[in-house]
Design a binder for these strands. Structure first.
Lengths: 239, 239
DNA sequence: CGGTGGATTGAGTGGCGTCAACCTGAGTGG
DNA sequence: CCACTCAGGTTGACGCCACTCAATCCACCG
């Protein structure tokens, strides 16, 4: 059930038996969304948060004339809009990229959890702090990296994040983003995304066909991405 | 002493007398930093967080060859590195821009607070969530705005944020960022920052001399910045 | 009075955007 | 089985925004 959440939180701290039980009893219902469908919309004031069980989702903001930006990507195990427990209305939408299965966690339950389980509260808080740390890393990337660097960095990050939930293969990953979506993630035009993908292919560090990215030279890729995984905070310690 | 914190948190929810007292008893000591000085460094594992009483500070990340980026700006009343309570080691540094006076809040005290005061915990959590919402807005700006749009957006945001702590004048603000620093904030080169400032001046929407920005046409400025303050979450409601 | 950091300006370059076309593969309906 | 559609991928031409290098100016300061 919610065990992906337990697995995820345990990457960052130990949980007691009781805490694990509390977490597994949280979700109230399941739901599914088709690619392109909005799971929550900017301006909404949801009364539940969604735990992504399966699929990829994006946090998006829109501007005039179809300009759009993706502020975050989420995969299995991510608590996509946990922050909506306290931060309402939503400052962005969440859109399904692939088909997404989610567990719905009522805010009432989460609020009750914060009243009774301080340690679990801190770990959930931490979860939103890691989201923020990823935002900061993306800010660095959008501000100070070249197009290839941006793309390489994204692949590095997602490969690592998928590994922590056993959703990546040893030599690469399934990468369902279309080039228009990649443009919204990297802050580039579609055309330039295409050329950047080709440029990255030409380095020989990865192969990339259909939705499959194979990493040929991890150290080389890390180098051009200037990727340092520290910001993902993947070491367990008391919180 | 810590009343700037109380004032800030009360913009987002009501506090009881007891809660106010708890908050005011938090800080243990004061400190001051000179312009350019690091208040915390990337990689550190601090045992306290800093409440900014006075001055401007920046969260910075560095890359090779002096490339640097500023991920956030902080002013009076901001809990600059509250997240370091749970998220260690630091994924960025905090650097004083002007002279900064801070109150030090030991993590031990904050942790104790989370054990006993769930509502206060949620409000502190919320505080870090607003930081994240600002990160997301900056991501939008860095990804999809022109240089003038970026600059205008920054001025809009800071004017509003300063107003909420009574640190802005009715018609503008004191703006201590040098152009090299602005470059790190906006993801632009120093030279281009200079030209962008001139371009903004030429619109007549603001005047800008020394460290003083005067807003001549707020609606016009908001328009070219595509600025919508919703993400700052400045409405009080139960959390 | 020289030193230093910031602001400003000019010249030249290149990365990335825009516009526009064309290609491909996966549906879909006749 | 084949036209048709449509989304995504690819390519070329062209232009501009923003970068780099370099010089100059200015204010402040020891």
């Amino acid at each position: 059930m919610s065990s992906p959440l337990v697995r995820k939180l345990e990457q960052r701290d130990r949980l007691s038996e009781e805490e694990r039980a509390v977490l597994e009893s949280l979700p109230s219902a399941h739901a599914a969304f088709e690619p392109g469908e909005d799971m929550v919309r900017q301006g909404d004031e949801p009364d539940h948060s969604m735990l992504l069980l399966d699929g990829w989702a994006a946090r998006t903001k829109s501007l005039s004339e179809g300009r759009r930006s993706i502020m975050a990507l989420h995969v299995s195990g991510d608590f996509v809009d946990l922050h909506s427990l306290l931060l309402k209305p939503m400052d962005h939408s969440v859109t399904a990229i692939t088909r997404c299965r989610v567990a719905l966690v009522p805010h009432a339950r989460l609020r009750a959890l914060t009243e009774r389980h301080p340690h679990l509260t801190r770990i959930l808080w931490l979860n939103t702090l890691v989201d923020a740390a990823i935002h900061r890393e993306w800010l660095l990337v959008r501000g100070r990296h070249t197009a290839v660097g941006k793309l390489a960095h994204l692949i590095c990050e997602l490969w690592l994040r998928l590994q922590t939930v056993d959703a990546a293969e040893a030599d690469g990953l399934n990468f369902p983003l279309t080039q228009p979506l990649l443009g919204d993630v990297l802050g580039l035009s579609t055309v330039h995304v295409n050329r950047t993908v080709q440029e990255l292919r030409a380095t020989g560090l990865v192969t990339w066909a259909r939705q499959r990215v194979t990493i040929k030279d991890w150290d080389g890729l890390r180098a051009i991405a200037e990727f340092d995984p520290a910001y993902l905070n993947l070491t367990p310690r008391p919180r």
